[in-house]
Every structure is written in structure tokens, then in C-alpha cells.
Write a protein that binds this DNA or RNA. Structure first.
Length: 517
RNA sequence: CGGGAUGUGGCGCAGUGGCAGCGCACCGGUUUUGGAAACCGGGGAUCGCCGGUUCGAAUCCGGUCAUCCCGACCA
């Protein structure tokens, strides 16, 4: 039951001392949290730094399969809310970026620019899109004439590039994959409604599919998207206490409508600029997924995004046993593969992905291998089980409902697999919520605040703030703590007046403060 | 972009001027197989890259590139 074998102590002594150390052991969180994250991503075979291209990563098949599952579910949610997919060019004329003053100011430092092509210098350079508001604004202007063309609700799955100074796999890479929704509406009210609707699509998705609890809120002016009136966000709590902005939804007002002259004739016959929104989530979600659930044994994946749901490890000694066990394993795999764990009303099916690990390795070695890959369910199948008509299974992480190895009659096991995976999904969310709750505090004095955020420490802290950018900047300057968001109703403590934790001035409500990625 | 660290086989490391090594992984074989198997045999690195010093450079010098950490910057 100490399901950990010997990978805790004898690891990585370095050098040629011999012995039984496991070089492939994962650094523990307590030892070195950033190194742990790197190890989990690498040993879990999610991704690796490209190296030959600065700041970029290679997403490996196991990691990309997670992205595909994220895409599948989100895409269905977008379609369910009336959006259609389209695709716009990777290259954007440099002049486009310049058209919205705040936008250019926000993005200029991180642009990659194409100046030469076809062996010649270009007349006008192209920018590699850091986001597509501008080029989409250009086309919206062509497509929209009348209020009958509205609302226009488009989504794009794409890659974007931002020349970041400091990169970390999934969390911040120079090139990343994402989805960007862009909509145009006849009224501001409708645009705000859309912005909030998509924020909640993200929030629901994060919790239901990724099992990542998030706080829905509004960004302060300093954290707002360049060119937006208001930026809404979902913030996730990571195991080192820091916050991760996991998704954003922007009310763009008429800023881009004016910059790109996107006008429509309303019912009264007057010309008006459209009201726009944009919203996006990226491969960063995978980084958040890793830092929410994974442990010192490696990756932990919720079933709804796990590329492989169950690994069957055949166990045998003699040739005739092998034949018998493999046959049974194939049969079991076939039955499991017919089970569908897609959510109710989903637009897709989600049949279990099952592998039989027939590699020539010791069973124990295989256990470790699948654990590092985060596979939710492990099935050990040996002669003893076949004799008894039972299945031996174990979940990657112990939950209140299922801990350690379980020995179940085959029929009972098969009948319960779907529910077990769904329960496991729920248990991961519950565990993540519990960890977050245990690391969320309400602070009222600056002394408490400084103690909470001393050194590298971070928690989620609900504090009063006087609402000024000066105070926000001063707090960040002193402690590296930022205001992650002003919570939407029900997402934090009920609004009650108080005094700012830093300035002592009056405050209307508490905001979420934490160090951030 | 600044400060620091590091770059030697797939991974982890040793080697500080004189034949490029070790552990794990990998390949072949035999025995094994319910929590990281054992033995035998074998393959694989122009020591990140470029230049310099030297009879001779993984090692010294200069430059450059990349990664990691910290900072600045950042939907």
C-alpha cells in the first residue's frame, strides 16, 4: 500500500556510485517546485523544449492528445452557443497592429516581424499574429453592413507568437496554440452578455472537464487586455500557491470597431460602430492541469482529458499462462473500449482508450511507467485473477471512495467502470478545491500580508483594496503580489465595506491577491 | 533584456593540457515476471557552436547559441 517503491530516497546521487537509484525519478515538489514541473512534463512525455527554436516547445503525442480533448469539448461548447469556426492569416500587415493605440502599445515589445520574403525586402513588413483582433476587424468591416448581419460570432483555432523574455513549457512559450473567439454585436449590452457567457463557458469547462477549480472575476485596469474596456478572467490556484490566469474574455467596446471602421446600419437607418468581444484559452491550460493535480510520482490526469483511461498489465510466469492472460486481456480491453464516458448532451462520444502493456518488462516497472503518464486506472491481470474470475484495479490517485488495489468480480468491475471514472473525475476536482481552500486566507493587516507572502510564499488572499492603481503598483513593488481579479458575485466573499490592506483607505469589497505565473 | 548557473552518448553525471569514461536507458541472448529483475555479449558522443593559444584543447582565452533559476517585461 506504500505504492511508491523506492523512488523517494535513493535518487540521483549523481556520478557512478552504482546501486539502485532511479535516474528517471521525478524531483519532489518540496525539493524544487519548478524542477518538479519540468520533470512531470518531460517524464509524462507531454512536451520538451525545442531548443533549436528559442522559447518554443515540441508538444509530444501524449501532450497533444490532451490538447485535442480540450479542443473537442470546447469546440462543442462554442458551437452550442452559436459560434462558427473560421481561419485568418498568420501574418498581419504591420499597419493593422498600429491602428488601435492601446493595442499597439501593449503588443509592440513582443512582436516578431517578417521583413523579407521571396529573397526581397517587403514593402510593408508583416507581423506574426500575437492575436487577431486587427486582421479580423478588417474583415468584419467588409462583412458587416446591416444590423441583420449581427451578431457575428466567429472562433478561430490557431497558433500565435509573442516574443516573451522568459518562457516555461505550456505556461508561457513564444509560440502557443489557442482559440480566439471574436464577435460583433449591435449593442453594448449584448456584447457584455456575450463576454460573460463565454467567461462562464470557460469556467464550467475548467471545472467539469479539467477538474481545475477557478475563480471568475474582473481584471483591474493594469491587467486588462490592450484595447479592451473590460477583461474578465478565470484564475486557477497552483500547488505552489501562485495563481494562473487560465482564460480571458474581453469586452472590446467599440475600440476596434472604430479603428477598423466596422459599421452597420441600425433599424432606424443610422450608421453605428459595432460592439465587439474576444475571448481565448490556450495550451497554457495544460500547464495549469499539471500543476493542479500532479504529485511527486508524476502526472495525474482527470478521465475527461486523459488520452489513455486504463492500462492493463498482464502478469504471467509460464508460456501457457501468458497465452491465457493475454487472451483475457484482449477480451477485457474490447469490453472496456465500448464504454462511453462523454458528458450528457455532449456533441461527441468519448469511448475509453485502453492499452495492454505487453512490453517485456517487469510488472512493477510498468506500474511506474503508467503512473508517470497520469493514466487514471490500472488493471493487473494474472492467473490468480482469471482463476477467481476477478479483476485487480487501482486508481492513479487514492480517493475517499477508492483507495489502494481493489479486487472485484469481473462483471461487477465492468458494470462499475464508467461510474468509477466519473467519481474519480469528481474526486480530483474536490481534492483540488480542498487544497485551494486550505491555502486561501482572508487578510486584514499589512503585517499578516507580508508574513503570508514572505520570500517565495504565496496563497490566495482576499483583501480589501482601495481601488487605485497606485496602491496596486505599490503592493506589487513591495511583495510581487498582484490583484488577480475582482470576484464576480458568488466567487469570493460577499461584498462588504472595509479598509484597504495597504493604504487604509475605504474599500467596497475584497479582491483576490496572489503571486502569479 | 540584466544578474547567476549550466551545456560531455537518450537521461543523470565524472573527467581542469596528453588514447573520451561511469551508472541508468538502448540492441542481441539466457534466465525471469503481482511495485523500477539478473547475468553474458554489444552499439552509440568530432565533449553546444565558431574562432584563438599550444607540439597537443572536453580542459586555457575570446565570442556566440541554448536551457534553467532570479529580476525586469508580459492576454
Amino acid at each position: 500500500m506504500s505504492g511508491k517503491g523506492g523512488n523517494k530516497q535513493g535518487k540521483k546521487q549523481g556520478g557512478s556510485k552504482g546501486g539502485k537509484q532511479h535516474e528517471l525519478a521525478i524531483t519532489t515538489r518540496a525539493e524544487d517546485y519548478p524542477k518538479w514541473y519540468q520533470d512531470v512534463v518531460r517524464f509524462g512525455e507531454l512536451a520538451e523544449p525545442a531548443k533549436v527554436v528559442k522559447g518554443c516547445m515540441v508538444i509530444r503525442p501524449h501532450g497533444y492528445a490532451i490538447w485535442e480533448k480540450i479542443q473537442r469539448d470546447l469546440d462543442a461548447r462554442f458551437k452550442n452557443t452559436g459560434h462558427r469556426n473560421a481561419y485568418f492569416p498568420l501574418l498581419v500587415p504591420q499597419s493593422f497592429i498600429m491602428k488601435e493605440a492601446e493595442h499597439i502599445e501593449g503588443f509592440a515589445p513582443e512582436l516578431a516581424v517578417v521583413t523579407h520574403a521571396g529573397g526581397q525586402e517587403l514593402e510593408e513588413p508583416y507581423v506574426i499574429r500575437p492575436t487577431s483582433e486587427t486582421i479580423i476587424g478588417h474583415f468584419f468591416a467588409k462583412w458587416i453592413d446591416s444590423h441583420r448581419d449581427l451578431p457575428l460570432k466567429i472562433n478561430q483555432w490557431a497558433n500565435v507568437m509573442r516574443w516573451e523574455l522568459r518562457t516555461r513549457m505550456f505556461l508561457r512559450t513564444t509560440e502557443f496554440l489557442w482559440q480566439e473567439g471574436h464577435t460583433a454585436h449591435a449593442t453594448h449590452e449584448e456584447a457584455i452578455e456575450e463576454t460573460l457567457q463565454m467567461l462562464h463557458v470557460y469556467g464550467d469547462f475548467a471545472e467539469e472537464v479539467l477538474a481545475v477549480p477557478v475563480t471568475r472575476g474582473i481584471k483591474t485596469a493594469s491587467e486588462r487586455f490592450a484595447g479592451a474596456l473590460e477583461t474578465y478572467c478565470i484564475e486557477a490556484w497552483m500547488q505552489d500557491g501562485k495563481a494562473l490566469q487560465a482564460g480571458t474574455s474581453h469586452d472590446l467596446g467599440q475600440n476596434f470597431g472604430k479603428a477598423f471602421d466596422v459599421k452597420f446600419q441600425n433599424e432606424a437607418g443610422d450608421l453605428e460602430h459595432v460592439w465587439q468581444t474576444s475571448w481565448g484559452v490556450s495550451t497554457r491550460l495544460i500547464g495549469g492541469l499539471v500543476m493542479t493535480h500532479s504529485d511527486d510520482d508524476g502526472l495525474v490526469l482527470p478521465p475527461r482529458v486523459a488520452p489513455i483511461h486504463a492500462a492493463i498489465i498482464p502478469i504471467f510466469r509460464k508460456a501457457h499462462e501468458k497465452e491465457r492472460v493475454m487472451e483475457a486481456a484482449e477480451r477485457l480491453k474490447e469490453q472496456l473500449s465500448a464504454i462511453d464516458i462523454a458528458p450528457e448532451r455532449a456533441r461527441y462520444r468519448d469511448f475509453l482508450e485502453v492499452v495492454i502493456d505487453d512490453r517485456d518488462m517487469r510488472p512493477g516497472a510498468k506500474f511506474y511507467d503508467w503512473e508517470r503518464r497520469g493514466v487514471p486506472m490500472r488493471i493487473e491481470l494474472g492467473p490468480k485473477d482469471l482463476d477467481k474470475g476477478q479483476v485487480c484495479m487501482k486508481m492513479r490517485v487514492d480517493t475517499p471512495a477508492c483507495s489502494g488495489k481493489q479486487f472485484l468480480p469481473e462483471a461487477e468491475f465492468l458494470g462499475s467502470v464508467r461510474q468509477r471514472l466519473l467519481d474519480y473525475q469528481d474526486a480530483l476536482l474536490a481534492a483540488a478545491k480542498a487544497r485551494r481552500a486550505a491555502n486561501t486566507v482572508t487578510l486584514d493587516t499589512w503585517e499578516e500580508f507580508e508574513a503570508t507572502f514572505a520570500g517565495d510564499e504565496s496563497k490566495f488572499a482576499w483583501c480589501h483594496w482601495d481601488g487605485t492603481a497606485e496602491t496596486e503598483a505599490a503592493i506589487k513593488d513591495k511583495t510581487k503580489v498582484t490583484i488577480r481579479c475582482v470576484p464576480l458575485e458568488g466567487q469570493g466573499p460577499a461584498a462588504e465595506p472595509g479598509t484597504c490592506i495597504f493604504s487604509g483607505k475605504p474599500s467596497k469589497q475584497r479582491v483576490l491577491m496572489a503571486k502569479a505565473y
